[in-house]
């Protein structure tokens, strides 16, 4: 266990020490929030209103998109933090780790926790913007959502680790991951509802772990009990798989399973590695 802790601690230490990265990590999500929250809310709300019987009174786009932007931040930070594995190989440090008696699973898990913690911290920084955006989430909801954010970040970091384990250069990693990240964001319901998609896209939406992540975050943060059914419908907060609506517990289990399987695959690559 100490190995996991050591690897986790190192990644965190380096995150806080890297000023440029710290600054970038603050500004990027804020930028997205400004663009999507400020710029798009008007048009999105008009569009949604035309679909709703009562003229879409209860639909607040910023409230809808905020958990989405948080998930998007988690996704990007998690995956890009996993790139530290490639950097460690380039700078030789991976050898120091691999010749030590730490179990290979602990290396992968430590790396996953490191990237996930950094991502969760960034997600939480966004919470500071809630009052500025004129939003009001319940404090208990925000506290409840943090452990879930960490779980989601773990799953996404594991995905990043898996890619980092077989891609040799940081450039190659960035390119590949960008191709992966974009559809994962757009086809997750983070920025707009993913109702009424063509079948093939719907399939991608349903296997995309971010979809469930976004859905759980929205269900926890948005006050769904007091919202109109039509608004919830329009928000797409009723994902059905095989004709059955999925529950929060199922979604959490799916994400946890996804994280476990991927981190085990990443472990295999550390096992046969001879850096």
């Amino acid at each position: 266990m100490e190995g996991i802790f050591a690897i986790w601690q190192r990644d965190l230490l380096k995150f806080f020490r890297d000023r440029a990265r710290l600054f970038g990590s603050f500004t990027m999500p804020i930028l997205f929030l400004l663009i999507f929250g400020g710029g798009m809310s008007g048009s999105m709300e008009t569009m949604m209103a035309s679909n709703m019987p009562e003229g879409g009174e209860g639909f607040n786009y910023v409230e809808f998109v905020f958990p989405g932007i948080v998930s998007m931040t988690l996704l990007m930070t998690s995956i890009f933090s996993a790139m530290s594995v490639i950097e460690d190989k380039d700078f030789g440090y991976m050898k120091e780790i691999l010749v030590s008696p730490i179990s290979r699973v602990h290396i992968a898990v430590g790396k996953m926790f490191g990237a996930a913690t950094v991502a969760t911290i960034q997600g939480m920084i966004l919470f500071l913007l809630i009052p500025l955006l004129g939003l009001s989430y319940q404090l208990t909801a925000l506290i409840q959502v943090i452990p879930f954010m960490f779980l989601l970040a773990c799953a996404l970091s594991a995905l990043g680790l898996l890619f980092a384990s077989f891609i040799r250069s940081t450039q190659g990693f960035q390119l590949t991951v960008q191709i992966l990240v974009m559809p994962m964001i757009f086809l997750s319901g983070a920025l707009f509802p993913v109702n009424n998609m063509p079948t093939w896209m719907d399939i991608i939406v349903k296997i995309n772990p971010v979809t469930y992540g976004v859905d759980v975050m929205k269900k926890i943060m948005i006050d769904i009990e007091n919202a109109q059914a039509a608004v919830l419908d329009a928000m797409g907060l009723n994902i059905t798989v095989w004709g059955r609506e999925v529950t929060i517990v199922e979604e959490i289990l799916f994400i946890a399973g996804f994280a476990t399987i991927l981190v085990l695959f990443a472990t295999l690559s550390f096992k046969r590695a001879n850096a």
């Binding site: 100490e2 190995g3 802790f5 050591a6 601690q9 190192r10 230490l13 380096k14 020490r17 890297d18 700078f91 030789g92 440090y93 050898k95 120091e96 780790i97 010749v99 030590s100 008696p101 730490i102």
Partner: peptide
């Protein structure tokens, strides 16, 4: 093992490098 190439974490202090090693080797 002292490798041919540098395997220290240069962003960390000497102390931090050594502490991490202590952890890796229990």
């Amino acid at each position: 093992i002292i490798f041919q190439e540098n395997t220290l974490d240069e962003k960390l202090t000497a102390n931090e490098n050594l502490l991490l090693h202590c952890r890796f080797y229990h």
